[in-house]
Amino acid sequence: MISPVKIWRRQKDIRKILGKKGKIFLWTKIFTPGTGFKKYAPYPVVLVELENNEKVYGQLVDHEEKDLKIGKKLISVLRKVRTASVDGVIAYGIKFRPLK
């Protein structure tokens, strides 16, 4: 269950990885998601290796199909990550957009 407190606790760490550059290490495109992600499907998910070698998961946004390849350079951005909970709390998290 996604409680408001859980969302709040996770969000403390998000600012640390905002605006970071990196490149695609792994990728896929999800066509059959779980609850809370259906309205975004199909959506690409990437595992990004940041410049400091840390690896971070996130969805790829503002992209073209040709951006879905290992090694593509990206930057992390703040976005809504799932449909709002019954409590009305909107969960924000990290997503990535391609760098030109």
Binding site: R10, P33, G34, A91
Partner: peptide, 27 residues
């Protein structure tokens, strides 16, 4: 519901990125 329940066996970060088990094996 089943995909979400199965995703309980993935890490919190993977779940939050909208990854499913088919997604992890697809990667």
């Amino acid at each position: 519901e089943v995909i979400t329940a199965l995703s309980a066996a993935a890490s919190g970060e993977e779940q939050e990125a909208g990854l499913t088990f088919s997604g992890l094996y697809a990667m």
